[in-house]
Simulated scan of single mutants.
Amino acid sequence: MSDQDCIDPFRAERQAHGILIADFVGETIPMILRHADVRQAAKDWTIFSSDAPMRVPIPSEEGVRSVRQLPIEADPPLHTQFRDLLKPIFLRPLAPDYQARIDALIARLIEAATAQPEIEIVRGFALPLQSRALTYLLGMPEEAAEEWIGWGTHVFHDGEDSTGKGATLDRYIRGALDAADVVHGTDFFAILRRATVDGRALTIDEMIGIANLTFAGGRDTVIHSVSRIIAYFAAHREELAALAADHKRIAFATEEFVRFISPLTHIGRVCAHRTQLGSHDVQADERISLCWASANHDERVFEDPGVVRLDRSPNPHLGFGSGVHNCLGATQARAILRSLIQQLATQTSAITVLGEERQYEEQTDYRRWVGFESLLVHMER
């Protein structure tokens, strides 16, 4: 299989049928592949529901957690209530002083990287960046990230014992909630302890479910995006130099990387009642997939979708989802990626890839390049 096929393994089925019937650990799930169809399905939560604890991720996560992740595993009006509760936290990256902290963090990481003859980007740069930036979002001391870094690139699936990793995260969250300063605290866990929805306090499972999603969601996706952006600019230094001369273009470049990389392949929905997808009959309580990665390479919407065009506009990508369940962490991800591009442009003079091991999402019916297991580079000031 060619590199291009691994970037967009859904092309043939998207063009021919718009649906791929795929097997996931013995479960047959139709994947919706076309941009317009994915957007339409994402909007219609009355048919394609997220009210399915543990079944929104594909494969499902019954074996690694026991609580509903909120707000992603709920439909309106419950979803809306929890989303509104969390918006003040997740919109913090819009503040200028917050962006300045992200800029300073990335500058420090680049300075440390350039002081060494080589650095492994995935665990030595992207993972610490994602974890330390998360402390800013949650209003916690940066030292808290050291424990989170130890969880690896995915809080459930980095390593062989996913169940044990899920239990580790659960213990951490319960301990942090117990230790929270309910009266005076301003951090994430204190806010959860004081929060109310519909005039009542949150249950312990609701608090754990929100925290579980906060630590699990956006972790590996940000890490993959950071590492692939660095690898891209190692091979395309002239494009990075052009961005340095016009920082307004960095926002366009960020959106194009999110489209092209599509770090989250897809997400699940459960059919509220029997429905038809193309020629495929889906029964009530069966799952379908909204395939963001395929939609983001749909040639009906994007000219030359297999080419990175850093000035692409318009760019109606679905890299952060679509509909009421669009990614709550998108503002944080954009802040990190925009700053990364700017700091690479201004704080480095060259990036050389010394070695790489790619990470693929491998299923019976497709093989997709999502990121790197390791990426060894030399950075120069």
Results as ranks from 00 to 15, higher is better:
residue 232 Y to S: 03
residue 361 E to P: 01
residue 38 V to I: 08
residue 72 I to H: 12
residue 187 D to I: 06
residue 252 F to I: 09
residue 90 F to E: 02
residue 337 L to I: 08
residue 180 A to K: 06
residue 365 D to I: 11
residue 188 F to D: 01
residue 334 R to T: 15
residue 158 D to E: 09
residue 132 R to S: 11
residue 235 A to M: 15
residue 2 S to K: 04
residue 183 V to G: 00
residue 49 S to F: 10
residue 299 E to T: 06
residue 166 G to P: 06
residue 128 P to W: 07
residue 74 A to L: 14
residue 234 A to M: 01
residue 98 Y to M: 10
residue 30 P to R: 00
residue 81 Q to F: 08
residue 347 Q to W: 02
residue 318 L to H: 07
residue 74 A to M: 10
residue 174 R to F: 02
residue 331 T to Q: 15
residue 14 R to W: 12
residue 254 T to E: 14
residue 137 L to I: 08
residue 222 V to Y: 05
residue 184 H to M: 04
residue 72 I to M: 15
residue 21 I to W: 03
residue 312 R to D: 09
residue 290 L to K: 02
residue 327 C to L: 11
residue 83 R to G: 03
residue 373 E to I: 07
residue 366 Y to Q: 13
residue 7 I to W: 13
residue 244 A to P: 09
residue 158 D to I: 05
residue 161 D to S: 14
residue 182 V to S: 14
residue 26 G to P: 11
residue 368 R to P: 00
residue 376 L to K: 15
residue 262 S to Y: 07
residue 131 S to T: 07
residue 347 Q to E: 09
residue 345 A to Y: 10
residue 368 R to A: 00
residue 319 G to S: 11
residue 282 V to I: 15
residue 167 A to F: 07
residue 186 T to Y: 06
residue 146 E to D: 03
residue 249 R to T: 03
residue 281 D to I: 04
residue 377 V to Y: 04
residue 178 D to Y: 11
residue 365 D to V: 03
residue 219 R to H: 13
residue 106 I to V: 14
residue 255 E to Y: 03
residue 112 A to H: 12
residue 94 L to F: 13
residue 368 R to V: 01
residue 191 I to P: 00
residue 253 A to F: 10
residue 280 H to S: 03
residue 118 E to F: 11
residue 49 S to D: 07
residue 296 N to E: 13
residue 307 V to G: 00
residue 174 R to L: 10
residue 263 P to F: 10
residue 27 E to W: 03
residue 85 L to F: 11
residue 196 T to N: 06
residue 297 H to P: 05
residue 185 G to I: 02
residue 265 T to V: 03
residue 309 R to L: 09
residue 69 Q to L: 15
residue 146 E to P: 02
residue 121 I to E: 03
residue 84 D to R: 05
residue 58 I to W: 02
residue 273 H to Q: 12
residue 206 E to F: 14
residue 322 S to A: 12
residue 221 T to R: 01
residue 26 G to I: 06
residue 271 C to L: 01
residue 381 R to K: 12
residue 276 Q to N: 04
residue 283 Q to H: 02
residue 226 V to L: 14
residue 288 I to G: 00
residue 248 K to T: 13
residue 118 E to R: 10
residue 273 H to I: 00
residue 55 R to E: 10
residue 176 A to T: 01
residue 69 Q to H: 13
residue 339 S to C: 15
residue 262 S to W: 09
residue 59 P to K: 02
residue 275 T to C: 15
residue 257 F to M: 08
residue 61 E to Q: 13
residue 380 E to R: 13
residue 49 S to M: 07
residue 291 C to Q: 01
residue 216 A to V: 01
residue 376 L to Q: 14
residue 106 I to Y: 08
residue 267 I to P: 01
residue 232 Y to D: 00
residue 167 A to H: 09
residue 123 R to N: 08
residue 213 L to F: 09
residue 163 T to W: 06
residue 345 A to K: 09
residue 190 A to W: 01
residue 49 S to R: 06
residue 190 A to F: 04
residue 259 R to L: 05
residue 55 R to K: 13
residue 245 A to Q: 12
residue 341 I to M: 13
residue 3 D to E: 09
residue 337 L to R: 04
residue 56 V to L: 06
residue 39 R to G: 05
residue 7 I to Q: 07
residue 341 I to S: 08
